[in-house]
Design a protein around this nucleic acid. Sequence first.
DNA 1: TCATTGATTTCA
DNA 2: GAAATCAATGAT
Length: 170
Amino acid sequence: MTSRLERTFFLDDAVTVARMMTGMYIVINAGERAERYLITETEAYLGQTDKACHASRGRTGRTEPMFLEGGHLYIYFVYGMHWMLNVVSGPAESPQAVLIRGVQHFSGPGRVTKGLGIDGSFNREDLTRSRRVWMEDSGLRPELVAGPRVGINYAGEPWVSKPWRFMIKN
DNA sequence: TCATTGATTTCA
DNA sequence: GAAATCAATGAT
């Protein structure tokens, strides 16, 4: 029996939450039945000081959800065609988030949202309360591999080489 | 390696 | 207002 992850799970810093989230299930309630997807790849974004994090340039309309309490979703659109799925972590007013880069069956952040049916309407959704999306402990504790983040070369050192990308070994 | 694509941010 | 930017993907 698996159960929904509670608020406390998301209140750690983004790096810790990213590591713990990898290997858990994200559950989408699509109509009548819930679909479970194993999270296989994540990246951590540590607001404020992290130049790769959108919130490092200040609070704007888009990044505002990152300032919510951990456990909320931060969804945004890039490259004119892809939704990105992020889980806010840390306490309120602490802009940190974990980008879900891959789940089982879907690799690549744009394909994850497409495959799960995630779009802008999920922005600010609360994983601990929502009836259409939440997370569950899979019971698995897979071996993880850490590496540098992808697609953020504009951020410059030392941020581009921080090993804040986590994926299940394989 | 390049075109696609449009919301967001930045600059004037 | 207008221009540049962008946590990417898929076709070539």
